[in-house]
Design a protein around this nucleic acid. Structure first.
Length: 865
RNA sequence: GCGGACGUGGCGGAACCGGUAGACGCACGAGACUUAAAAUCUUGCGGCCGCAAGGCCGUGCGGGUUCGAGUCCCGCCGUCCGCACCA
């Protein structure tokens, strides 16, 4: 190429070009989005970052993907909203404050400044005029307003509850934030504590949140399933078991069951250690008291639960079987019954529940099988140490015998609902959810203050809307553990808004997941000072058409946001129920790990590679000591396998980093960051630049035009389709294919200037969403007017996508033996004739006719001989 | 334990509704240019046999359906993810 083109351009200089084009875009304000644009809207959003300090490769991948969609949709004629903001409240700021004696606000805003600069150096097409930070009173003021609205609507409550206490972060955590019994952030084993907390009543929407999942067709099936399981709906029966003697006026125990069909297999009743009946009994029973305390102690540590034995305490109480008053069952207090689920009491059917069986075997309660698997003799069906929880025919169950389990469920439910024995129903059908209300109180400083004032006589009083925001105090000290708001008397002590008496502010702040539950709505009109949203704007822009982020938020953030949007609908701040119409969960960025001979982790920047007998070996750049290449893992500081985006952008440019991020792996899978891969991307950047410049020099007679134009339009059609489906790795492959075709055509010398420039122009527009700076530079080199970022997406010429002749594979008995070339519209008969005329086919047939000929038009020919 | 996803060259991966397995890239081999290196260019690259033409085998393993299976069905094996005393 260099030889054939004496006017060869210099190498493309990303360092020079990238800031230049970023400045040009900013000057032209082309990424600032008006709300009143008549074109169809498209809202693309990536999960906003926590300003932890610097961006990491995960951010680069996330935002590169979103930017491809934004730029593509803009070229397709949409009015695209693509904003950015900061999820700016959170514990790291407080930890930094404690460790480094800096103010959390200063620390946060310094990080925002750094990270904003880094994102801008990536050349993202963001509307920075809509930037928001959740720690800004101008943002959280509206969150406080909505909190009060929710409170008025009954969507917020305050109650005492057993909560997850993180002893390291000194705060309460929601159920969703406890992973494997540990705090999601601190990793500390959580403890159970009884505290008075504010709750968002997400359970009010359990049914709706579950039902609406089916409508989220552009969500990954996996995420929908995870949410479905998390909400955990079950349908069963609440059955009242009458006690044979009253205990402190309690005459019955309510039990929730999803298997009323197995009621005749019941052997015992078990209640939770926290059950009111257990407490009542314990009052006069020290042994039981000890047992209950033991249960509570074990209950706090999740790990213990996994290994803990099923333990019970026989109370001596008896209950009557609801289907046979003469049948009495013993009542146990058991460590495996949860007060939080159902009624805090279960009936045990050992034959058909493993846990009940373990318990029954331990205490010698026996078992009676009542569901017999198909094909099994009822007489010989015995349960010893493995319960049977499958389907079958009812046995040993009086009036249920012979029914299916499902029929028996209905029969029992019907009979107990219309109870004939006592004249009143002893059971009711009930739907039960696993989902708990969302506890939002956090005993931390760096969060959105809960706008409540506690008054001795009036109770919790909402701060008047006119007094919002309740701002965090500016000066705080972190020299003692605990929440500094508690100690800030000037801030805390205020008069009651209702009666004027001395009162005190709520010192808990909101879970930071509240902040991120509505930011996408705020982006639609972030300039409003007197309301969280403008209905016209929010209803126009929502739902987000394409949301992109990590799978780790499959439940947490994505469930909270779905709830919050509904709560906003209930309070009039939005007319939309679902915030995200399309969701994409991208994979992580992973990297090899390296260890030196001493077992210490070594960062990739300190390693050089050599190939010895085809084997890749690593050495330390300075000491030349051999380095062991370890497993490929998520980039993490602890394993030192991180690559800083700044370093990559400085040495290769943003386009190279973006291109590599999009090229190798399917976006939903993990991508392995490799030096070779980045270099490959960098080579391609230069190759595009050379090709585009060479295209301006084309001077052929046009003999190769048609083939090149076909290649260009095939790529155009393919990339369009693949961007729509977020298959960026395939887009990249198509671009390479077109680059190869253009290269070959130019080298052949038979391509006309017009066709060369058309193909080069298409190539540039195809890479523009992915490598926007290079694309602008090339666009200019081609002499095209304006910015490629503003150019409409080229039209595919459909005629160029069809071939006049097609080549079909010919199989004989299912094995490929030849090819046959026929006109595109040849019918089956013509294809058959052409196939049979092939020399290779005739040789096999030896004059005989094939037994069968299968012609799939446009696809394949198969001969059976 | 329950629920789900996945398994294709040395590597990342492609293959639409069952129709040419391995697109595209990376790595690697050979060669050209160069004093040399980088860059660039040419070329090879699933395995086995063969000078070649060509043939045989091949998508985790074992069966099945089909003219035809990476794709569908049944049974294993392995990896990853989510939930987990939920009655």
């Amino acid at each position: 190429m260099t030889n054939s083109n004496p006017t060869a351009p210099e190498r493309y200089n990303a360092k020079d070009a990238e800031p230049r084009w970023q400045e040009a875009w900013a000057q032209a304000k082309i990424f600032e989005t008006p709300n009143d644009d008549p074109r169809p809207k498209y809202y693309v959003l990536e999960m906003f970052p926590y300003p932890s300090g610097r961006i990491h490769m995960g951010h680069v991948r996330n935002y590169a993907m979103g930017d491809v969609v934004a730029r593509y949709k803009r070229a397709k004629g949409f009015n695209v909203l693509h904003p950015m903001g900061w999820d700016a409240f959170g514990l790291p700021a407080e930890n930094a404050a404690m460790e480094r004696k800096v103010n959390p606000r200063d620390w946060t805003y310094a990080n925002i400044g750094t990270m904003r600069g880094q994102l801008q150096s990536m050349g993202l097409s963001l509307d920075w005029s809509r930037e928001i930070a959740t720690c800004d009173p101008a943002y959280y003021k509206h969150q406080q307003r909505m909190f009060l609205d929710f409170l008025e609507k009954g969507l917020v409550t305050r109650r005492t509850a057993k909560v997850n206490w993180d002893p390291v972060d000194h705060t309460v955590l929601a159920n969703e934030q406890v992973i494997d019994g540990r705090g999601w952030r601190s990793g500390a084993l959580v403890e159970s504590r009884e505290l008075t907390q504010w709750f968002f009543k997400i359970t009010d929407f359990a049914e709706e949140l579950l039902g609406a999942l089916d409508g989220l067709e552009r969500w990954p099936e996996k995420v929908r399933l995870m949410q479905k399981n998390w909400i955990g709906k079950s349908e069963g029966l609440e059955v009242r078991f009458a006690l044979t003697r009253a205990v402190h006026e309690q005459t019955e125990v309510k039990v929730y069951t999803t298997r009323p069909d197995t009621l005749f297999g019941a052997k015992f009743l078990a209640i939770a250690a926290d059950h009111p009946l257990a407490s009542a009994l314990a009052a006069g029973n020290p042994a039981l008291q000890t047992f209950i305390e033991e249960c509570r102690r074990i209950g706090t540590a999740q790990e213990a639960i996994d290994t803990a034995e099923k333990l019970g305490f026989e109370t001596g109480l008896k209950v009557r079987h609801p289907l046979d008053p003469a049948w009495e069952l013993p009542v146990y207090v058991a460590n495996f019954v949860l007060m939080e689920y159902g009624t805090g009491a279960v009936f045990g059917c050992p034959a058909h529940d493993q846990r009940d069986l373990d318990f029954a075997n331990k205490y010698g309660l026996g078992n009676t099988p009542v569901v017999c698997p198909e094909g099994q003799e009822a007489a010989s069906f015995v349960i010893t140490d493995t319960a049977y929880d499958g389907d079958g025919r009812m046995i040993n169950s009086r009036f249920l015998d012979g029914m299916s389990a499902h029929e028996a469920f209905e029969a029992v439910a019907n009979r107990l609902e219309a109870e004939v024995l006592t004249g009143k129903p002893v059971a009711a059908r009930k739907v039960q959810f696993r989902l708990r209300d969302w506890g939002v109180s956090r005993q931390r400083y760096w969060g959105c203050p809960i706008p409540i004032i506690h008054c001795e006589s009036c109770g919790p009083v909402p701060v008047p809307v006119a007094d919002l925001p309740v701002k965090l105090p500016e000066t705080v000290s972190f020299d003692q553990p605990g929440n500094p708001l508690e100690r800030d008397h000037a801030w805390r002590n205020v008069p009651c808004p209702k009666c004027g008496a001395a009162a005190r502010r709520e010192t808990d702040t909101m879970d930071t997941f509240v902040d991120s539950s509505w930011y996408f709505a705020r982006f639609t009109a972030p300039w409003l000072t007197d309301a969280p949203t403008e209905r016209k704007a929010v209803d126009h822009w929502l739902a987000v058409d394409q949301y992109i982020g990590g799978i780790e938020h499959a439940i947490l953030h994505l469930l909270y946001a779905r709830f919050f949007t509904r709560a906003m609908r209930e309070t009039g701040w939005s007319g939309v129920a679902e915030p995200f119409a399309g969701l994409f969960t991208q994979g992580m960025v992973v990297h090899e790990t390296y260890k030196d001979e001493g077992g210490a982790w070594v960062p990739p920047a300190e390693i050089r590679f050599e190939s010895e007998a085809g084997e890749r070996k690593a050495f330390h750049v300075k000491t030349a000591a051999p380095i062991a290449i370890g497993a490929i893992e998520k980039m993490s500081k602890s394993k030192k396998n991180v690559v800083d985006p700044d370093d990559i952008i400085a040495s290769y440019g943003a386009d190279t980093a973006r291109w590599f991020m999009l090229s190798d792996s399917p976006p939903e899978r993990d991508v392995i960051w490799t030096e070779e891969g980045v270099q490959g991307a960098a080579r391609f950047v230069q190759r595009v630049w050379r090709l585009v410049n060479a295209a301006t020099q084309a001077a052929g007679d046009g003999a190769a035009d048609l083939a090149l134009r076909k290649a260009a339009h095939r790529a155009l059609a393919g990339v369009g389709e693949d961007v729509e489906r977020l298959r960026f790795n395939r887009c990249v492959a198509q671009v390479y294919t077109l680059a190869n075709a253009l290269d070959e055509a130019l080298r052949g010398g038979a391509v006309s200037p017009a066709a060369a420039q058309e193909a080069a122009g298409i190539l540039v527009q195809l890479i523009a969403p992915m490598m926007p700076h290079l694309a602008e530079e090339c666009w200019q080199a081609l002499g095209r007017p304006g910015l490629v970022a503003q150019a409409p997406w080229p039209q595919v010429e459909a005629a160029l996508l069809v071939e006049d002749e097609i080549t079909l594979p010919v199989q004989i008995n299912g094995k490929k033996r030849a090819d046959v070339t026929v006109p595109r519209d040849a019918d089956a008969k013509a294809v058959e004739a052409a196939t049979l005329a092939l020399e290779a086919v005739q040789k096999v047939l030896e004059g005989k006719a094939p037994r069968k000929v299968i012609v799939v038009p446009g696809r394949i020919v198969n001969l059976v001989v």
